[in-house]
């Protein structure tokens, strides 16, 4: 069948949008990362790799943000994946109750991040918040914490909020993946006398690997880019303990007006995400099998 060349014209609107909103900003960031541009002056100087060198040798806050981001990412990726998978296994069958539960678990995802931040800031409030009050009520008063005010705890409190916010979204991916696994394989496993755990590890998990890859990669990127939730709940405090790379880029660019330096951090940020995502893909791909 001969395809008319005019069909390629349909790529143009998408390509224009992609170029305006992705390609151009990326190339601009690379360009400005080599300058000392302040974001508003018509002129700037080329500073070579000074901004990159500053990020790694002369900016202790930036190094701290990488550590914070890794902590945040680890907690979110592990818990969000596990929670989503556990709930997906619970609501796998299509009954009225499970369909309702799927909608219920998905509900936080449709909220705006500012609303979520507001709700959870209230939950975490040390004196008026319901979390501490609930712990007191059930006799676990010794577990009450200054959830967002303790520099050692705040990043994990934010991570829990992030898990609550997005686990429902990942649950849907897992449910779709689980439903695509042929039932025959479970029947064979049953006939062969496989235990529930063996069935999960030898049948379910390997065949779920493509969905898990998507979930883990998406969760990783999402946790690196969790700007709005973090900014609305703690603004990076106390004492920079919840400052992550995205919030730091914003502050450097729009509070300190160092767009050149902020661009350099953005490029580093992009490279970090690319490396981690590549490693995850590689690790999860090696788990994949087909029957």
């Amino acid at each position: 069948m001969k395809i008319s060349k005019s069909i390629y014209m349909f790529f143009i609107p998408g390509f224009i949008l992609y170029s305006i909103f992705f390609l151009y900003p990326t190339v601009s960031a690379l360009f400005y990362s080599l300058t000392d541009w302040d974001g508003f002056s018509p002129s700037f100087q080329f500073v070579g790799l000074d901004n990159y060198s500053r990020a790694f040798t002369g900016d202790s806050i930036f190094l701290k943000t990488i550590g914070n981001n890794l902590k945040f990412m680890l907690v979110v990726v592990i818990f969000q994946t596990l929670v989503a998978l556990a709930f997906a296994l619970i609501v796998l069958k299509n009954t009225k109750t499970t369909i309702f539960l799927r909608a219920l678990y998905f509900f936080p995802t449709i909220l705006s991040s500012v609303s979520v931040a507001f709700i959870w800031s209230f939950i975490y409030d040390p004196s008026l918040g319901i979390l501490n009050q609930l712990l007191e009520l059930i006799g676990l008063g010794f577990l009450t914490q200054n959830w967002l005010g303790d520099a050692n705890l705040a990043i994990y409190s934010l991570a829990i909020t992030q898990v609550w916010f997005h686990a429902g979204q990942m649950l849907i991916i897992f449910v779709a993946g689980l439903q695509a696994i042929p039932q025959d394989l479970y029947e064979v496993a049953k006939i062969e006398g496989a235990s529930k755990w063996q069935t999960f590890t030898k049948v379910t998990w390997p065949l779920l690997a493509p969905s898990a890859t998507i979930v883990v990669a998406y969760t990783t990127i999402q946790s690196f880019k969790a700007f709005d939730l973090v900014f609305a709940m703690t603004r990076g405090g106390p004492n920079n303990s919840t400052e992550i790379i995205a919030t730091y880029i914003y502050k450097v660019a729009f509070r300190s007006f160092q767009f050149g330096y902020a661009s350099a951090i953005s490029v580093i940020f992009m490279v970090i995400i690319a490396i981690i995502t590549y490693l995850q893909f590689k690790a999860l791909r090696s788990d994949r099998i087909s029957y």
């Binding site: 800031s121 975490y124 409030d125 040390p126 004196s127 008026l128 200054n146 959830w147 005010g149 303790d150």
Partner: peptide
């Protein structure tokens, strides 16, 4: 100042 002051926002 109140306990857990770093976790208290202006509304509280």
């Amino acid at each position: 100042i109140q306990k857990n002051a770093l976790g208290t926002n202006q509304d509280s």
